[in-house]
């Protein structure tokens, strides 16, 4: 390894560099409003400064000018600009491909094309480049909020409701999102990654979601798979072709291919996987998964290697 750097662990998580149409339009609005706010601030402080130096009463027209006319002009402009931006980015495209994202304490369930093929993944959302996608946002427990600053603004996931938002990613790469509504003990540890791929790679990814998970082709991986099957993991987790149906926990069919572990928090590798399995409750307090600290050493190693191999 040359020059290891933690900076590459996570995708970009800032609204200042936009990689989606929503964030793009908002950034323009943000910049314009910031400049206008700065100018108005300087004008008001200038008025304070003039008032300080002055020694006789001013005209009541200042109240009308500064308190009514100036705000009306500024606000009128703002409301118009904001409404047009909202109209541009707030529209939900019913024809676009749908990705259903369901918030859980403290992870994200993801289903591509829920009405059709229902391709399931978790904690990593793959988006096609330059193609509008409608996100369908739900929650299984408390209120969460879906936020990928570089792609678009946030939208809450409210029990009993489905909120929809259409996003278009305009730059390939990795971006980080995070739950933005306080959702309990491990709220700060509820992040995810968005990976934007060109159309061809995106199609390949979807194809990958249809096929069975990679086979356990060595003795150790086979032992890992058996541990997975026999130690109760399948009560909550599914691996396509191995144990399907369980939905209480993230789908693990391609866990090894994700960049991060534990909902966008740790770099995906055997070391973190082993530590995670053996002591989830220490790494993510309040998570639904118990710590599997009763596995024998070789079993723990085997299952960690097995999961890391699922790419």
């Amino acid at each position: 390894m040359n020059g290891p750097s933690t900076l590459d662990t996570y995708g970009s998580q800032t609204s200042f560099s936009s990689a989606g149409t929503g964030a793009d339009a908002t950034l323009v609005l943000t910049t314009a409003m910031s400049v206008a706010a700065a100018v108005i601030f300087l004008l008001v402080m200038g008025a304070v400064w003039l008032a300080w130096r002055r020694d006789r009463p001013g005209s009541v027209w200042w109240i009308w000018g500064g308190g009514v006319i100036l705000p009306v002009i500024a606000l009128g402009t703002l409301v118009v600009a904001s409404t047009f931006t909202l109209a541009a980015i707030g529209r939900v495209d019913d024809g676009a491909p749908v990705i259903e994202v369901t918030g859980h304490q403290y992870w994200w369930d993801i289903v591509h094309d829920p009405e059709g093929r229902a391709l399931r993944d978790a904690n990593e959302i793959v988006l096609p480049l330059n193609i509008p996608v409608t996100l369908s946002l739900k929650t299984e427990d408390v209120i969460h909020s879906f936020w990928v600053p570089s792609i678009a603004g946030k939208m809450d996931m409210v029990p009993g409701r489905i909120n929809r938002m259409t996003v278009t990613a305009t730059e390939a790469g990795r971006f980080r999102g995070q739950c933005a509504e306080f959702c309990g003990l491990s709220h700060p540890l509820m992040a995810f990654e968005v990976v934007v791929l060109p159309q061809a790679e995106y199609d390949a990814y979807l194809e990958d979601l249809r096929s069975e998970a990679r086979d356990a082709d060595t003795a150790q991986l086979a032992r890992g798979r058996d541990v997975f099957l026999n130690e109760g993991c399948i009560a909550c987790h599914a691996i396509r072709g191995v144990a399907e149906g369980a939905r209480l926990g993230p789908d693990l069919s391609r866990i090894g291919a994700r960049a991060t572990l534990g909902a966008g928090m740790w770099r995906m590798n055997v070391g973190n996987l082993a530590g995670w399995i053996a002591d989830v409750q220490d790494m993510k307090p309040g998570a639904q998964m118990p710590s599997y600290n009763h596995l024998s050493g070789p079993d723990l190693r085997a299952v960690a290697h097995y999961l890391a191999s699922l790419k």
Binding site: R56, G67, P71
Partner: peptide
Amino acid sequence: FSAASTIVTIPTGVQIFCFILTLAQKRP
């Protein structure tokens, strides 16, 4: 609600300018 929220700036602005004009009457 977005438009309504901006309107509250007007009474706030009036108060701020009342303060500024009070300041203008004499060096405090």
